[in-house]
């Protein structure tokens, strides 16, 4: 029983890491798309682009957190409604 619980825990942990990596990849693609115009006359990151990337990452993670909280709230509400 304890072994099974540990196995479950490991599966959940692996899934969490995988989802984190997925989120990270999506964030990279999104912020690249939003901040870097598709003209490559230079290989340096321009100042404005750098600021844009910093803000984009911060905002993306912020929104990720907020949506996560809201989703958690909603699913808790659903669960308590189902129990009634």
């Amino acid at each position: 029983m304890a072994q099974k619980e540990q196995q479950n825990f490991q599966v959940i942990q692996e899934l969490e890491i995988e989802m984190m990596a997925d989120m990270y990849n999506r964030m990279t693609a999104t912020c690249h798309k939003k901040c870097i115009p598709p003209v490559y006359g230079d290989s340096e990151i321009a100042k404005g682009e750098a600021v844009c990337i910093d803000r984009c990452v911060a905002k993306f993670l912020d929104i990720h957190e907020r949506i996560g909280k809201k989703l958690g709230q909603l699913s808790m509400q659903d669960e308590s409604l189902l129990k009634k």
């Binding site: 690249h32 682009e49 990337i53 910093d54």
Partner: peptide, 12 residues
């Protein structure tokens, strides 16, 4: 540039 952007994102 892509590599530099990735590096920056990873730092943040």
């Amino acid at each position: 540039k892509f590599l530099k952007v990735n590096q920056r994102i990873s730092q943040r």
